[in-house]
Amino acid sequence: MLDVSDLKKSYHKVEAVKGISFKVSTGEIVIILGPNGAGKSTVIKCIAGLLRYEGDIWINSLKNKTLEAKRILSYIPETPSLYELLTVSEHVDFVAKAYNIKDYENRAEELYERFDLLDKKNKLGKELSKGMQQKVSIICGLITNPKLILFDEPMMGLDPKAIKELKSLFLELRDAGVGIIISTHIIDSIIGLWDKALIMKDGNIIYERSKEELTESDETLEEVFFRATGI
């Protein structure tokens, strides 16, 4: 599904990502953990095609910046970014039209209900709280029926019910064969969800294990995280 190979990204003279490689399979949830400044968001943005980079990123054997790859990719940014003058439902309409998605209305209604936004459908982007904006951002990411979704700190600002819904959505999407990448620095938020964990520090992947491998080693993810990052 996703193949990242020798990915490097520098901001001016600072190397934010130093040649990392990893893969995400169909129906796999990969979490990227790391302390602040480890390069997690940069990796996510490179995969989303928002930054220039060195190396290769392939989505379903397509270069990530090609139109074909974009059609099957979704990205939910760390800071929700909505149009101030569009309502919640207009955001969803816009994204659906831009991706040429047909018959999305029922799916949208279902997502509004799951994220408690049914009564907020006609609210403008700027009238929403940060948490609600994040919910809209998630719905916009899901409405395009992607094959690969990138979540950058998706739980930030969400209420407990929305977190619960999102977690069950992760599992539903995985069962439907969607590849998911979740970047976070809050380990507790993704316990029981992931299939593969990558731990980043200073722009490098310093640990990569599947859930089975970790179970065999008899360590918890938290223990591994602190040992690997040395914090």
């Binding site: 039209k97 831009a98 040429n100």
Partner: peptide, 24 residues
């Protein structure tokens, strides 16, 4: 003041951007 409009985003793909701007 933001007016309530019943407009819709009528076009798809790239034209959806223009449609959104007109709605805004």
């Amino acid at each position: 003041k933001i007016r309530k409009t019943t407009g819709k985003i009528n076009y798809t793909r790239g034209r959806a951007i223009l449609s959104k701007q007109i709605l805004e």
